[in-house]
Amino acid sequence: MRQMTQRADPAPSRLTYRFERMMLTPLFRFALRVVLPFGLTALSAGIWFSDQDRRDNINMVIDDVRTSIVERPEFMVKAMAIEGASASVADDIREILPVDFPVSSFDLSLEDMKETVVGLSPVKAASLRVRPGGVLQITVAERTPVMLWRMRDGLHLVDAEGFVVAQAAGRDAYPELPVMAGEGADQATAEAMTLMRAAGPLTPRVRGLVRVGARRWDVVLDRGQRIMLPEVGAVAALEHVAALSQVHEMLERDLSVVDMRLGDRPTIRIAERSVQAWWRIRETRVGLE
């Protein structure tokens, strides 16, 4: 009797069938080929770096490599050069930027240093760069004072944008600059400069401008005279007074105030001494009669 040979079942096992079905899923293939190797690598690295001595050794190697790069001679900054700044401003810059030379250019934050320099009142703009040869170049554009602002603590220099540049040593130190006073005068510096240009023939007699109520200007002349300008149309009003003074010599008379706040026609106020003199003359005439 012949013995029957058993043939192997060609059908895959249940586990193999499920694995092949899962391999048809893109997400499973991605997890098997990417996520699993990455996770095993991260786990191995975490176990290896869990040792404090190994971490210290790695940090020392990294620090040595960084130091060997950043301290190369071509990256070292040895000096500071400042252009466009006055002596006092240059001294202030060196004081607020206490850089210990030599220093690596990698250790300098030029943007932060620029913000510090521009934070100085006299500085309008600044640029910083490291020149070849290891020189930190600081180029400064200073604010140009155009007015003197009289405050309670003294005179201050103000630029065309209304920024207070510095405190003035005294009026005699800046004889070419006009003087303004009053609350909020620094916020209307541009208008004040326009009024100074509009004064025309009155310019030699102008002693300053006073901001009244933070909304309008008074022009102060020599001999104690004052031109009260309106809140709107101040330039036109001042030009009108200058024309009247030039044609009719209005301001050559003994006036104390020319009020332009109520339209184009000026309202004048006679000086007190002239009023008293007029009353004396009148009383004398009455007595003679």
Results as ranks from 00 to 15, higher is better:
T41H: 01
L36W: 13
D107N: 11
H240T: 14
E142W: 03
I58A: 12
M1P: 15
R14H: 14
F163G: 02
V34W: 08
Q187D: 15
R7A: 13
A199M: 06
M196I: 15
E239R: 05
A190L: 06
L209M: 08
A271R: 09
N59V: 14
W149H: 10
K78I: 14
L43Y: 00
V235F: 00
R269K: 11
G162A: 07
G182K: 01
E111R: 12
R273H: 10
A79T: 15
A237I: 06
L24P: 00
G46R: 01
G224E: 09
M23E: 10
D222C: 08
L155S: 04
L221I: 12
V34L: 07
S88H: 05
D9Y: 03
I69H: 12
E191D: 05
W279M: 13
E95H: 14
G119K: 12
I69T: 05
M250V: 13
V77R: 08
E249Q: 12
E289I: 11
E249W: 00
L238V: 02
T116K: 10
L32T: 08
E176A: 15
V130W: 02
S274L: 02
D254S: 10
E231W: 00
P230C: 06
M80R: 13
D259Q: 04
D264W: 08
T203F: 13
R282N: 03
L110F: 08
D222Q: 13
T194Y: 02
P266Q: 01
P73Q: 13
P98H: 15
R280S: 12
R205F: 01
P178M: 03
A126E: 04
S274V: 05
L148M: 12
T25Y: 00
P145T: 04
F19S: 07
L255P: 04
L255Q: 02
S44F: 15
R205D: 06
E249F: 02
